[in-house]
Simulated assay, not measured.
Amino acid sequence: MVKGLIHSVESMGLVDGPGIRTVFFLQGCALRCRYCHNPDTWEPDSPKAAWYTPEEVLHRLERFRPYYGSTGGATFSGGEPLLQPDFLAETLELCQQAGIHTCLDTAGVGLGHYEAILAHTDLVLLDVKHYTPTGYRQVTGRSMEAFDRFLTAAQAMGKPLWIRHVAVPGLTDGEAHLAGLEGYLNTLRHVKRVELLPYHTLGVHKYAALGIPYPLEGVAPLEAKTLEDWNQRLNQTCCDKE
């Protein structure tokens, strides 16, 4: 019997896809993003995480179905959900069979089997860490090749994308960087929305609790209003490329 290790569940989330959603945060992530606010999800196992079968996930979703309306549903996030491909694919299939909208919130770095996963995914929230190989490695500590493999699969299958990009002062912000991001996003198809997310420090306390040095110590949070013009511009110029 296939099972998945889930770090935590948010019963009625409002920011991880359209409408009201139940969000499952899967345990494990191969990236080490410098601004990550969930370092407690990195390791592939954790005594605080819980094992679920796909049927148990569906049962929990059914409890909240009355709140979803016509736009809500289930979102699978992390950590990185693509690191548990068999569990993810089976769970997504059960959700769709039950008529529950499925959303995958991912950085695109997993263990393959992407066609089976995407076949039952209605929407992909794709976290674009950076748009150049050098910048991507600087942010995540990894090569961009794995991300590109997932993106290629999603593009080939025509999956609608909501793009997310965290703007970090001195790392992934500024006019030149965001103009470069705009150029990159204009090479993609099926982009329905772009979300520039301001860097914050809400997860810094977790590093101290885990005894891990925080990579961006001293970097101040970014105010959301500084990104308003670029958010509007990117949504006007980069979306609905079929």
Rank of each mutant, 00 (worst) to 15 (best):
Val2Gln: 02
Leu5Met: 15
Val9Phe: 07
Ser11Leu: 12
Leu14Ser: 10
Asp16Pro: 06
Gly17Phe: 09
Gly19His: 11
Ile20Gln: 10
Thr22His: 06
Val23Ser: 03
Gln27Ser: 12
Tyr35His: 12
Thr41Ala: 15
Pro44Val: 05
Asp45Phe: 15
Asp45His: 12
Ser46Asp: 13
Pro47Ser: 09
Ala49Met: 13
Tyr52Gly: 12
Thr53Asn: 08
Pro54Lys: 13
Pro54Phe: 13
Glu56Ala: 15
Leu58Gly: 13
His59Asp: 14
Arg60Val: 00
Arg63Met: 09
Pro66Tyr: 08
Tyr68Pro: 02
Ser70Leu: 04
Ser70Trp: 00
Thr71Cys: 00
Gly72Trp: 05
Ala74Tyr: 08
Ala74Pro: 07
Ala74Phe: 09
Thr75Gly: 05
Ser77Met: 03
Glu80Leu: 05
Leu82Thr: 10
Leu83Gln: 07
Leu83Val: 15
Pro85Ser: 02
Asp86Leu: 11
Thr91Gly: 14
Thr91Ala: 14
Gln97Phe: 01
Ala98Met: 12
Leu104Ile: 09
Val109Trp: 01
Gly110His: 06
Leu111Ser: 08
Gly112Thr: 10
Tyr114His: 11
Tyr114Asn: 10
Tyr114Met: 09
Ala116Phe: 02
Ile117Ala: 03
Leu118Trp: 12
Ala119Ser: 15
His120Lys: 14
Asp122Cys: 04
Asp122His: 12
Asp122Gln: 06
Asp127Trp: 10
Val128Leu: 13
Pro133Glu: 12
Thr134Trp: 02
Tyr136Pro: 00
Tyr136Trp: 03
Thr140His: 00
Arg142Trp: 02
Ser143Glu: 12
Ser143Thr: 12
Glu145Trp: 02
Glu145Val: 14
Ala146Asn: 10
Ala146His: 03
Ala146Pro: 02
Ala146Ser: 10
Ala146Arg: 06
Phe147His: 04
Asp148Met: 15
Arg149Met: 11
Ala153Thr: 10
Ala154Gly: 13
Gln155Val: 11
Met157Ala: 15
Val166Trp: 06
Asp173Gln: 03
Asp173Trp: 05
Ala176His: 08
Asn186Thr: 07
Arg189Gln: 13
His190Gln: 12
Val191His: 04
Val191Thr: 09
Val194Met: 05
Pro198Asn: 07
His200Tyr: 04
His200Gln: 05
Thr201Phe: 00
Thr201Leu: 04
Thr201Tyr: 01
Leu202His: 02
Lys206His: 08
Leu210Asp: 12
Gly211Lys: 00
Pro213Phe: 08
Pro213Cys: 06
Tyr214Met: 03
Pro215Glu: 06
Gly218Phe: 02
Pro221Trp: 11
Pro221Cys: 11
Leu222Gln: 01
Lys225Leu: 14
Asn231Pro: 05
Asn231Ala: 08
Leu234Arg: 01
Asn235Arg: 01
Gln236Tyr: 01
Gln236Thr: 11
Gln236Lys: 08
Thr237Tyr: 00
Lys241Asp: 01
